[in-house]
């Protein structure tokens, strides 16, 4: 009878398998062979976690999100999403996705807030008919994010912060268990950014798993429960307090350190 394995190796085995994790990446490499964007990256996210990914511009943060979401195929390694291989993941309604404000692309598109949020219901029932209960979900979701008064507004008439709330509502309407956000606060004014992060905190308190890519390191340290610092490879993976004290940031950012860092990060 052997003794049960060391805790670390047991954790590693689970990482490799990733079956019980919401998100799992194992030894993932992606990009041109000579200059990979992502190299040998492993991390996972458990149920109910709030993980923030930070890193300099071009560090592969968004690419990593796309890999775990199954939008790209890794050159090496494996990504899993909610227990399934990301590329074969079919239960799409379980994942909510919020990117940078997409208004640039849809500046003139007439679409109401309610119509945009209703899209969260589309993957349910294989894109069948929208029912009254779908519309109820939309109303609830808009209420949760606090913009139910704007349901019939044209979405382009909203402020950046309100619009991002609408996209969160789209994920909530779809009953997502995992919220993936790719730099959601770009172009949103400072006050609305604070309110936006408080909304995420509230959702996380209610059990939502959050994977956030964010350029504002200060906000990640303040709100996320775990920080991953990425620049092609993982420089740090742990609690925000330890991250703030480590030299991972200066190593990952090189000489560009300090430009976007919040007051909590000294960089020393």
């Amino acid at each position: 009878m052997t003794v049960s394995p060391e805790p670390t190796s047991s954790t590693d085995d689970r990482h490799r398998d990733g079956a019980d994790r919401v998100v799992a990446a194992a030894d993932v490499t992606f990009g041109y062979a000579a200059a990979p964007v992502i190299e040998d990256v492993s991390f996972d996210v458990g149920c109910g976690e709030y993980v923030g990914i930070v890193g300099p511009n071009g560090s592969g943060k968004s690419t990593l999100l796309r890999l775990v979401l199954g939008l790209h195929e890794p050159d090496a390694g494996k990504c899993r999403l909610l227990g399934h291989p990301s590329l074969a993941f079919a239960e799409r309604e379980r994942v909510g996705y919020v990117a940078q404000d997409v208004t640039e692309n849809t500046k003139r598109m007439p679409i109401t807030v309610a119509e945009a949020v209703l899209m969260g219901r589309f993957p349910h029932a294989g894109f069948g008919r929208v029912t009254e209960s779908d519309r109820d979900r939309v109303r609830e979701a808009l209420h949760t994010v606090g913009i139910e008064q704007l349901a019939d507004r044209k979405i382009t008439a909203l402020s950046g912060g309100q619009r991002q709330r609408a996209y969160i509502a789209r994920a909530l309407a779809g009953e997502a268990e995992l919220l993936v956000l790719d730099e959601p606060t770009v172009g949103v004014d400072a006050e609305s950014v604070d309110a936006f992060f408080e909304l995420l905190d509230g959702l996380n308190d209610d059990g939502m798993t959050i994977l956030l890519v964010e350029h504002d390191i200060g906000a990640v340290i303040e709100h996320a429960a775990r920080v991953i610092c990425l620049n092609r490879e993982v420089y740090f993976d742990g609690p925000p307090a330890a991250f703030a004290e480590s030299d991972a940031l200066s190593r990952a950012y090189g000489t560009t350190l300090g430009v976007g860092a919040g007051p909590e990060v000294d960089g020393s």
Binding site: L69, L71, A90, R92, E93, V95, Y97, A99, V102, N105, T106, M109, I111, E115, A116, M119, F122, P123, F127, V130, Y167, R170, G174, V180
Partner: peptide, 18 residues
């Protein structure tokens, strides 16, 4: 209609939605 609308409005989110 729904798929076309989703793709028109937000291509990446549409891809994430399968």
């Amino acid at each position: 209609y729904k798929q076309l609308l989703y793709v028109t409005f937000d291509e990446t989110a549409a891809r994430v939605a399968g």
